[in-house]
Structure formats: structure tokens, C-alpha cells
Design a protein around this nucleic acid. Structure first.
Lengths: 134, 134, 134, 134
DNA sequence: GTGGTCTAGACCACA
DNA sequence: GTGGTCTAGACCACA
């Protein structure tokens, strides 16, 4: 469910945080639901447990998850209402960045929009694929 | 002309590379034109000359610029024809990343497109502004 | 295993690159094998870690080695088949340079060949020794 | 008559020195003969006069040339007898370096000699050509 | 412990 | 003044 890009400059622990936030935002992980254990996830992602632990620790600090000693980590309650807003904010952040970068190329809004439509359709055909490289 | 974001995970030397690539792609820097000297740019960006030197060195390795001992760095000849393609490729990369990230939120293409249009118009009103934070 | 000549005009990082390429070409370092860590090699050669790091970084860019965060650097896979060709190319480069320089002295090919034979035998007697000073 | 390689790590002034030494060793420049003026040579090589001046100064310090104020630079007298020995020494240096580098590849002397013969013949066919890159 | 980035500052070749 | 190399040393991510 989660993928880490080793070529990205974004630290592994940040990538793990982002991926888990997405799972919550899409409803793949619901309030109260258990996250994979640190060791489990670390093994799956071929990361050191320390790295995953750091991601969980920071997600806990922002109250997205809670950890119960001896039991594991769970999506925090009260998350549900926040999700909708977070999702919208995330979408805007993502789109605004693309728009800003496109405009920095000195392109007209019409051109940008046309290109966006084409790429969006294209992405529908191919399913979700793509190489990130922040 | 160039701005660096100290809060970004992207290394300074990569940010400098990206910014200079943009200047070439937008035609702000044309083939044969001189780049600011390493020391000059470093001073302007409050970076260490070593950091800017690394950016220039790598841009030279990708043949975007050429350096003449004792004289300075210049946009490479033969850049002009390459620019158009690079620009398009960059635009696609930027848009595709946004599309991929939006789709990972389980949003419909229509929703995504509608949001994109709104944000694009909004960006036109405000002029080019925005808080980056890659 | 590696030696650096501080009197050479060739930068230290280039000398390190050349020496490591040789180790791979002679089979002293095989695909997958670990290279000494940057700090280790730097200490051994009495060089600054930055200098060795630059050598490794550039060897990585030419796909001769791969680096894993926190683990170290390793000879790239797929190196084996490339080695034979690289070895031959390197030999030709070395011999051609000597031939060109000898010819620039206006010597006959026979003279050059005779001298080469004598020096080659002589080198066999003495074992591998020699004062470089590029 | 002289060529400078801007991609070489050998400083320009050293390349100039070496090239002039070769001209003397091959008899292209004889004792008492005038060298091109500093400005002339600098213009021909597209170098700054300072750079050529440094080469001349150092060649003068090693007594290969003499400079007469207002007249120019000349190959020193007493050079003739030295030339023969210098030529041989230079040849040996050049060949020994090639031999050392070939042996560092773990090649047999027979292999090396065979390759040398082939490359020597090849060089005869093509005339003097070649890209150096020390 | 292993790499990666960055600053501060020195020294050199070249224009 | 313009680049290029190098050292010393700090700080961070990752194992």
C-alpha cells in the first residue's frame, strides 16, 4: 500500500508520514483501525525500524495516530471529521504547486489548462502510474 | 531573479540548478549569455560559493552551460533548440505529479479538473505568488 | 591498495576515481563488493572525506558503483561485462598517448618499438615500480 | 606548431613549456633561434599574455631560453649537446609511464607488447592525431 | 558507523 | 576578478 522513493530528497520518515496521512485521507485507514507494526512496515519497505519509528512518533505528536504500549498503533479517534478538510487542503497544495511551477515557465493559463486536461485524460487511460522524483 | 527556499528538503545546489534551468527555459537567459559569477550569485543568495560552484559544475556536465577558466560561465550554444522540448517535458512532469497525487486521494477526474480550474483562475488574480515548501 | 600522488597536477578526486576504476578493471574489486567507506579511505590516504566523497559521487554517476544510504558504497552489478571492454579501451588510451608523444619527438617507429621493448623488459626485471608525475 | 588542451588538468603554462621543449628536442627550434614573441604566441593560442610570459620565465630559469630586453626570446646556446640526452630521457619517461599503467591492469608483457605494436602501426597509417586528456 | 550537504576559508591558475 | 580544488568541521538522515 505504501511506497518509498529512495531517489527522492524527501527523507524516508517524511515519505512514510505522507503515505500514512494519505491512507487516512482516502479512508483506507479509518479511525480506530490498527496500523501495521513498526517492524512489519519496516520489513515491508526495506527500511530500518528506527526510520519507521520516527515517522510514527511524529504522526503521534500531531495526533493523527495513537500508540498503546504493547498493543500497537491506531488511527486516532476524532480523525474522521478532520479528514475532509485535510483532503481539500492537500489537493489545493498539490495543484497550486503545479500551477506555480507551470506559470514560472511563462505559459498562458489556457495552455496550462489544456495541457492539464490532456495529461489528466492520459492518466485515466493508463491507471495510476508515474515516477516521482521530488 | 533566483530564489532559494531554505526550508525545502531539496538541497541548495539542486534548487540553484532548477532555477537556472528555468531561466534558460523561459528565455531570460539566452545561448551565449553570461551567468552571474559564482561568487556574485553566492553572495546574492547568501550561499557559500562552493554550493553555487557545485550547481554550475553539474549544469555544465549536462551541457546546459559552459565555463571558461578565468572568464566565467555562459549558457551553452545549441541550447535554444533544446529549450522548447525541455520546457514541454518539464510542464508534463509538473502536471503529472500533481495529477498522480490528486488521484491518490481517490478523487474523480472531474473533481480534480474543476479544482484545478478554480486554483488556476485564482492564481491569475493574485499574480504569481505562493508558498513553496517541497 | 590505492596510492595518490600529491605532486601530480591531476586533482586528488580524479586520482581516486582512476585508482578505483583500476581495481575494478583488474578484478581486485568485483561486482557487489563493498568499497572502503569514505571516511576510512580518506583516513588511509590522508585526504579530506569531502574529496573522497566527490570521487565516489562521480563514480556513482558513471554507474561504476552504487551507494546505499547509511550502508556504504558497492561495486555496481552489471559491471563484470563492461570491465573487459573498459580494460581494453584504457590500454589503448595509455599506449596511444605514449606513441603520440614519442612520435612528436620525430622518432622512427622502429626506434620507438625498440625502446619500448627494452623498457618493458627492464620493467619486468624490476617489478612494478616507477615514479609517476603526471 | 603548438597546441594547448583546455580539458587537460596540466596548467596552460606547463603545456606551453612542454611544447617548446619538444620543439627544441626535435630541432624545430635551434640554438640561437628566436621564439615567437609573448604577445604573438598568446594571440595564436588564445591565451592571456601573462600565461605565456610565465612559461617563458620558467624556461629561462631552467636556461633553455634567454630573453634579451627589447629584442625577444631565443633558444639558449649550449642547448644542442643537451638535446640528445633530453630526448632520450623524455622518451623513456613517456614509455615507462605507459608500461607502468599497462602493468597496473595486470596484463602480461607479451599482451602489452602485442598491443603496442598494433597501435604503433595504426598510428603510422593515420598520421599524428589523437586526443590527449591528462 | 555510513553518506550527504553545507559553510568558512585558503591557495592556485587564468584573464 | 573568475573558476577549481582542498581542508576542517558541523549537522542531518539512515542502518
Amino acid at each position: 500500500m505504501i511506497k518509498i522513493d529512495p531517489t527522492s530528497y524527501t527523507p524516508f520518515y517524511e515519505q512514510v508520514k505522507t503515505e500514512i496521512r494519505k491512507l487516512v485521507m482516502t479512508g483506507s485507514l479509518r479511525a480506530g483501525e490498527a496500523l501495521p507494526s513498526i517492524r512489519e512496515l519496516a520489513a515491508g519497505l526495506v527500511l530500518n525500524p528506527n526510520t519507521v519509528a520516527r515517522a510514527y512518533r511524529e504522526l503521534e505528536r500531531e495526533s493523527l495516530i495513537v500508540t498503546q504500549k504493547g498493543k500497537g498503533s491506531f488511527v486516532a479517534d476524532g480523525t474522521a471529521p478532520v479528514v475532509r478538510k485535510a483532503k481539500e487542503a492537500h489537493l489545493h497544495r498539490v495543484l497550486d504547486r503545479a500551477i506555480r511551477e507551470a506559470r514560472e515557465l511563462d505559459l498562458d493559463p489556457e495552455e496550462i489548462l489544456a495541457a492539464f486536461k490532456r495529461r489528466l485524460e492520459r492518466s485515466g487511460d493508463e491507471g495510476k502510474k508515474g515516477d516521482r522524483h521530488d
